[in-house]
Write a protein that binds this DNA or RNA. Structure first.
Lengths: 172, 172
DNA sequence: TGATTTGTTCAAAAAAGATTGAACAAACCT
DNA sequence: AGGTTTGTTCAATCTTTTTTGAACAAATCA
């Protein structure tokens, strides 16, 4: 059992979080809440964010007191979002993670993974809506439905146009 | 029991949703999902959005098949968000609701109610973080923490600046 | 006044979502 | 080969959030 030795050598492997770390974690837990992501993801990203050296899955499990399953899934989601990357692991088998800290890039990943799919499904739904509207018999009702569906199309179009602009703004 | 009579007089009181209405509702249920709001709110807003005439709480209960409690709370949240308003009810006691359909205004309400509070709590957290960082003894560790906290401050500042810009973009 | 309508509140139930942990697979070592 | 380390998967469990519905209050009516 080498735990004590490795802890002594590497402070980053301490099996608790200090007060500062806890505060940063809380900051990000609140952030993931707004974004509709699970708490564990905020915890993982938060700890990586404030850690001077990269951390492994087992580090996260030990220090955040979460299960391997949670850590594994959380890391996968963060990778998909482009919010973390693997650190250079010199010959080591174990992989270590570092946070991406470029806000523009982070926003880009979130938009791509969490927003765009909904906009696309929205467009599909609008196609079907247009078809349904055509088969309304009452002319007044049909006209009203058209107007509202047109409005929805405008909304979706505007939202799509805004995402890149938004990302651009975050990069400056 | 006057239900049949009133239904015959006012199609908006029919106790089912037609296919078009259901599709619009589904569209908004997906929307509220992205925004992290409960499904019932998407249903209520969706039905109001596609209804040619204003609807009352009881209309919503009957047609969406949800409880009075859900409808009442959903309407309250939508009011708070500025997403609906009360229709002119000529001497009637019962209140009827109409959707706000101005995207800029809708976004404004959401930002004000759901985003800004988190940004403000973020600022508070940053103050405490700065205090904690000061009391780190190791200079290297303290310097690193400073850098990261500075980054967080930049993020919060940028986000705050972007919200009005975003709203502006949606208004054009 | 008492009966009816309209809407709110909130504790309990249901549903949705996140986390756990044990079984498994793959990579590495001796 | 067998043993160990590292990480993934997913059904079961736990937690959080939403919804329900019955009790209540306030307004209207007869």
């Amino acid at each position: 059992m080498l735990t004590l030795v490795s802890e002594a050598l590497d402070p980053a492997a301490a099996e608790i979080v200090d007060p500062l770390e806890q505060q940063v974690i809380d900051f990000f837990v609140d952030g993931t809440r707004v974004l509709g992501l699970p708490r564990s993801i905020g915890e993982i990203y938060g700890l990586l964010f404030i850690s001077p050296s990269p951390l492994s899955l087992d580090d996260l499990v030990a220090r955040l007191d979460i299960s391997k399953g949670s850590a594994s899934q959380g890391l996968r989601t963060l990778k998909t979002l482009g919010a973390i990357r693997e650190a250079q692991n010199h010959g080591q088998r174990r992989t270590y993670y570092q946070p991406a800290t470029d806000l523009k890039r982070l926003a880009g990943g979130f938009i791509k993974e969490q927003i765009r799919p909904h906009l696309e499904s929205g467009r599909t739904k609008l196609d079907r809506l247009n078809a349904s509207a055509e088969s309304i018999t009452d002319p007044g009702r049909r006209e009203f439905a058209r107007e509202r569906i047109d409005k929805l199309e405008t909304w979706v179009r505007k939202s799509s146009r805004i995402l890149p602009a938004l990302q651009k703004l975050l990069g400056s």
